[in-house]
Design a protein around this nucleic acid. Sequence first.
DNA 1: TCAAAAGTGTTAAGTTTACACCCATGA
DNA 2: TCATGGGTGTAAACTTAACACTTTTGA
Lengths: 225, 225
Amino acid sequence: MANYYSENSSFYVGIDCIIFGFNEGELNLLLLKRNFEPAMGEWSLMGGFVQKSESIDNAAKRILAELTGLENVYMEQVSAFGEVDRDPGERVISIAYYALININEYDKELVQKHNAHWININALPPLIFDHQQMVEQARDLMKQKASIEPIGFNLLPKLFTLSQLQSLYEAIYGCSIDKRNFRKRIAEMDYIEKTDKIDKTGSRRGAALYKFNEKAYRKAPNFKL
Amino acid sequence: MANYYSENSSFYVGIDCIIFGFNEGELNLLLLKRNFEPAMGEWSLMGGFVQKSESIDNAAKRILAELTGLENVYMEQVSAFGEVDRDPGERVISIAYYALININEYDKELVQKHNAHWININALPPLIFDHQQMVEQARDLMKQKASIEPIGFNLLPKLFTLSQLQSLYEAIYGCSIDKRNFRKRIAEMDYIEKTDKIDKTGSRRGAALYKFNEKAYRKAPNFKL
DNA sequence: TCAAAAGTGTTAAGTTTACACCCATGA
DNA sequence: TCATGGGTGTAAACTTAACACTTTTGA
């Protein structure tokens, strides 16, 4: 039975992470300015290789944590990429995952050590290999998912204002949203709860802070934005 | 530089195909009753291994053709599956693809040789490994895609009646559709063209045969069903 | 002549969009 | 006192859903 498998080739299997952050009304990606080979000096996604002992999902989590120090991050697989020459150094089949993180809560030292930087998603530099394609697919998938499941909250602090939430969705969808219509829809979602806290940093008047109640959502999931 | 890669493990990379067909108002999958190891005697998806010389997309096409004799089939990647023990024989990372084929046009000898059978998707037997999960994801993805792109036609003959088309979408969505509303929507799609041919097999009266005009669609893509 | 599938429009309900002003506050 | 972002409701346009009868023809 060992023969059944052993007549086949085996491959390095990589993971590449499209790490989304949201800051000042803009989506950003955490990209590496590579100070290592291959493709030293160029921009790439954070990546790594799947190891014998771990599932691909766990490999993705590990690699994300290596860069950000974060665990329990929202991640979703985008796709496997397997053109023969996608990595000119060696045949590598790579599986892309996107991650949504709160841009205020990651390990800045680790990020610095990897020479990683937040780059506005609408002004990306050229990326190595097929990483641009990965980013495009990740962005489409994330947009689509964000419209039917409340994943956007992963990009915000626990407490957020409705203006922040709106500007997040404007960044995700790439279009502007009518404020009153937006708030009407949010008001119908009982699991987006107004707290009695006020954010005074964004305006003189202050804005009510809201939170996403995961448990309440799971009882009555009815998201659509 | 070889070292950069060579400290990592390598893996068998498999392909599994979720092959959809449509017959008599029902979606079917082409499944193997395995007369080979591993898991002889059990039901599985058609699968195979990626080879050194081919991209993963081409591997999927090759493996589909090995079973059906078909080329130029609509296929889309579903996801990579990579739990450590998903295949109890060996560590295999597998990439699932779904395919849409016309159930009247495939190589029946090849299918017989592989001991493959069309099984109603709503009455599937237990499948090996994580193949059931693959099927579920493929079905969700296909449903989603079918609602925004005209991929359903791949499951029908070139000429089809509106009743066939409606029953196809009812099978995909798993719900019934109002006939008049359905036809109204189809009438608005200029790239679904009425021919002057009549199908007399499905009714005494005969039904007009339609065809999907790919070129016209590409000029004015506006699908939504 | 009748069974069986083909074909055909209208109305109500629901959803989405457009739109403009007052409020509270700190500088 | 005024500049800035926070907060609020209504009406029109559009989309979706519900609904029933006539036609054709082969057996």
